[in-house]
Design a protein around this nucleic acid. Structure first.
Lengths: 164, 164
DNA sequence: CCCGAGAGTGTAATGATATAACATTTGCAA
DNA sequence: TTGCAAATGTTATATCATTACACTCTCGGG
């Protein structure tokens, strides 16, 4: 049951790489990669799917950490601000960034493909400053700072074999 | 204080037109444009901005209608399903469609420009099947059914003169 | 040495958004 | 006129997110 991305991969290595990259990024930028923040990112990477803040709390409790909502939201804010995770507005949920190293430093705005059947989420484009939006914005005299692009539909697996 | 769209216009006529268009559309498609639905659309048109469901309830109460959340949500679901209104995921809020007549019949997925300072929302493109997303989806074997595109930034007025 | 500022955390309470469930009413058609 | 489907009224509850405040820890200046 893949939940993020539509292809198989070496998930253990994937997590290790991502955590290492995050650690380096924080060190390089003077950010505090505290236990709580580290743990929330690990959870997102491990579960490998879009998770609500409240889905994260039990995992924190398992680790003996405080499991009140602000703990999760504060860690998520940090991760999102620094491009280590993203919020899926459509789902009010969060995912680990698929490839933080590919981006400069701070937050960025990828596009997401969301399967409405199995809930899998794939991060699709590095930067989603879709040209169409840019053109429309320019016409309107609007200064774009951030773009949310979320496509909802069917992933290859669900399109082929609708779940029972 | 324009709240939807960034330009002035004859708002009274705008509402009348929109309501007439909605009425015709519902008649043509055998949809029940009931008082509650009609009233909620009127409220959205009148206020002319992105409104939460709970912002709508007091207006319903003023009219002596039931003001429980399900009333608003049911009407909004109807309006959104039939392309007469849209949900702004980023804001958890709803706006009347700027131009229902321009679309076939059902729901459609425009792009929105959202001013982070004054909250104004402008509906930007008729169809937001952004080519970039389409290409990425095709590459991933993903079937897109609906695309949310929401740009956040500064409207021309706020970019020029930041509110006090 | 100490102490004051800033960042992070722990915790309780509350606010904001959305839906479930079920009884009742309405419109329409067999 | 009876019966169904759609819509509505109402209560309760689920879900998502933030406020507020006390506490700790670290680090640099006096």
């Amino acid at each position: 049951m893949p939940a993020l991305g539509f292809e198989h991969h070496d998930h253990g290595a994937c997590i290790d790489n991502a955590m290492r990259a995050a650690t380096e990024r924080c060190a390089a930028q003077g950010l505090q990669f505290t236990p709580a923040r580290r743990r929330v990112l690990e959870i997102l990477l491990k579960e490998h799917k879009a998770m609500g803040a409240y889905d994260i709390l039990p995992h924190l409790a398992d680790d003996g950490m405080s499991a009140q909502p602000p703990v999760a939201y504060r860690a998520l804010d940090f991760l999102v601000s620094n491009g280590l995770a993203h919020k899926i507005e459509r789902l009010n949920a969060y995912v680990a960034c698929a490839d933080p190293a590919a981006h400069g430093g701070g937050a960025h705005s990828p596009a997401f493909l969301i399967c409405r059947t199995c809930g899998a989420v794939e991060e699709a484009l590095a930067e989603a400053d879709a040209s169409l939006v840019g053109a429309a914005a320019q016409r309107a005299g609007f200064t774009v700072e951030r773009v949310v692009i979320e496509a909802e539909g069917l992933c290859p697996l669900c399109a082929k074999a609708p779940p029972a």
